[in-house]
Design a protein around this nucleic acid. Structure first.
Lengths: 196, 196
DNA sequence: CTCATCTCCAACGTTTACGTTGGAGATGAG
DNA sequence: CTCATCTCCAACGTAAACGTTGGAGATGAG
C-alpha cells in the first residue's frame, strides 16, 4: 500500500479538510463535532487540533478553501451582453448544484451574524472584481445600466443561490410543476441585464 | 399591577414564544438553549416544557406563528401589472426588514435539510395561492409569461430574501456603494414581470 | 542504529444543555 | 374556606462535546 510506505501529512490534512467540509455543510459550525469530523476522515481526533487549532479555525480554513475553489472554477472577467450574464448565472448555478456545500457554508456563516468574516478584505476584493466586470459592461453599453452594478451582480447571485438557501420553499412553490431551475434563472438573469 | 391580579397563561405563552423567536432566529434550533429562552422571557424554564413540549416542538410552533403573521401582513391576491409586482417585492422586503427573524428561521429550517417540514401541506397551499396570483396575471396578459409562474414567484422572493440570507455578501459587494436595496429589488422585480 | 516526527488510542477534567422532578407559594372559582 | 390550577425555584441524573494529555507504535532521515 502506498499509504503505508511514507508519512503523508498533506494527505492527512486533506482528508480532514474534506471531512470537515461535509460535516460543517451538513450540521453547521455549532452542530458539527470534532469527533465526527475525525471519524469521517478516518483520522484521529487529536490530529485536528494539532493541524487546525480549534473548531472556529477549522471552519474558517475550510470555507476559505472552498471560496478559492469556486473563484477558480467560475471566473468572470468579461461580459459582452445579456447572454453572457445568463451564462454566468448558469455557471454559478451549475457549480452550486455540483457542490452544494459552498452555499450552505456561506449560509451558516451569514447566520452566525459576525460583524466581520475571516479574510473579509480579500473576499471584498474578489466580489469587487465581479462588480467591476458588470460596471465595465454597463459603461460599454453592452448591458442595462438602470441598476447599480453592485445590485445587479448581487441579485444575479441571488437568483442562483436562493434555490439552495430555502429548498423547502422551492419544493412548495413548485409542488405542481417541477420545472427547470437552471433555465428559469438564466432567463431571469438575462432579463435583468437586457438594455432598453 | 395588572399582571399580578390574575393568572394569564396566554400572556405567559406569548412571552415565551416571543423569546423563543428571538433566540431561535439568533442561534438556530441547535444553538438555542431552553434555559436562555426562559430567562429572556422572565419565565421559569419548566413552563416551556409544560406548554410546548421539547425544543423541536417549540421551534415548529414559533415558525408556524411567524408564517401566519407574514401571511396576514403581506397579502397577495391580485396583480395588475409589473408595478404591482414591484410593490409586492417591496412589501416583502419591508416586512423582512422589520422582522428579520422570519428569514432567519426559514434559513435555519432549510439548513436542517428535513425531507418535509412541519405543516408542509398547509404551507404548500399558501405558496400555491401566490403562484396562482402570478399565473392569473400572466393569463390576463398583465405581466410577462415567459417564465413559469412558480419560477417567477420564487425568484421575486429570492430578490427580496437574499440580502438577509447572506448579509456578509451584501456587505462585500456593496463595500464601495451602500446603495438602496429596496429600490434595487423593486426595479429588478418590475423587470422580471415586464411584458414584451 | 538513532532519533525526531507522525500517528493512534484511551482516557481525562470541564462545561453545558437536555428534560425531569419535588416542594412550596400565589390565585381565584365554587 | 377549599381546592384545583398556575407559577417559581432548586436541584437532579444523563448525555454530549470541548480541548488536552500521557503513553506507545511506526516511519524514515542522517
Amino acid at each position: 500500500m502506498l499509504t503505508t510506505m511514507a508519512w503523508d501529512t498533506e494527505q492527512t490534512k486533506r482528508k480532514l479538510k474534506d471531512a470537515a467540509v461535509a460535516e460543517f455543510a451538513a450540521h453547521g459550525p455549532g452542530g458539527t463535532t470534532m469527533e465526527r469530523v475525525a471519524r469521517r476522515a478516518g483520522v484521529n481526533k487529536e490530529r485536528l487540533y494539532n493541524y487546525f487549532g480549534d473548531k472556529n479555525s477549522l471552519f474558517a480554513t475550510v470555507l476559505a478553501d472552498e471560496l478559492n475553489k469556486v473563484a477558480a472554477a467560475v471566473p468572470l472577467d468579461h461580459l459582452d451582453g445579456p447572454d453572457a450574464v445568463a451564462d454566468y448565472a448558469g455557471a454559478v448555478h451549475d457549480y452550486h448544484a455540483a457542490h452544494p456545500e459552498l452555499t450552505r457554508l456561506l449560509l451558516w456563516e451569514g447566520l452566525a451574524g459576525l460583524p466581520r468574516v475571516p479574510d473579509e478584505t480579500t473576499r471584498t476584493r474578489y466580489y469587487q472584481a465581479k462588480v467591476d466586470t458588470f460596471a465595465r459592461a454597463q459603461r460599454a453599453g453592452l448591458i442595462s445600466d438602470t441598476l447599480p452594478p453592485a445590485d445587479l451582480a448581487f441579485l444575479v447571485l441571488a437568483l442562483a443561490g436562493w434555490w439552495y438557501a430555502v429548498p423547502q420553499m422551492a419544493r412548495m412553490t413548485h409542488a405542481d410543476a417541477p420545472g427547470d431551475p437552471r433555465a428559469a434563472l438564466r432567463h431571469a438573469a438575462r432579463r435583468l441585464a437586457q438594455p432598453g
